[in-house]
């Protein structure tokens, strides 16, 4: 059974642990996630190169969402802002509920299977966790 990405292009579902497909500007060195294709937000350069980013960092903020109108999205769930070790602050799902006390703690991503597609593949997303072991 293979893994497939819930958000194609943002990460490689075949990798052992999640890594993020970011961008580095070859002119000014700024790094971005989600990746940019058209031009650098910092300096406007078109010299953008793919950058594999480790999905680890510190928890910058967190919020548990109690109500959501979007289709296929069921509340409650917990959203994290993660200051990646490689620079940018990104938003991602947090595997477990967390409160303010978790801000500043180390987090890293593990694969979470959100569903199985019609070919029997596991559809995976990186979910960050405060835990240092096990699956989410």
């Amino acid at each position: 059974m293979d893994r497939t990405a819930a958000k194609p292009g943002l990460y490689d579902p075949a990798s052992l642990v999640p890594q993020l497909n970011g961008t580095r500007c070859s002119d000014c060195g700024a790094t971005f996630f989600p990746p940019l294709q058209t031009g650098c937000e910092e300096c406007g350069s078109t010299g953008l190169t793919p950058l594999k980013m480790e999905a680890s960092g510190t928890l910058h903020s967190v919020a548990t969402v109690h109500m959501h109108m979007g289709k296929d999205i069921e509340a409650p769930f917990t959203v994290a802002e993660v200051a990646l070790d490689s620079g940018p602050i990104i938003r991602a799902m947090l595997a477990e509920p967390a409160d303010l006390n978790a801000i500043g703690k180390r987090v890293s991503a593990l694969w979470k299977t959100t569903k199985t597609d019609e070919d029997g593949n596991e559809v995976v997303e990186p979910y960050f966790t405060l835990s240092t072991k096990g699956d989410v």
């Binding site: 958000k7 292009g9 943002l10 959501h68 979007g70």
Partner: peptide, 14 residues
């Protein structure tokens, strides 16, 4: 063509 990990899960109140 902007995609992110949240896919609509962060609306203004979040």
């Amino acid at each position: 063509g902007v995609r992110d990990l949240m896919g609509g899960r962060v609306v203004p109140f979040t």
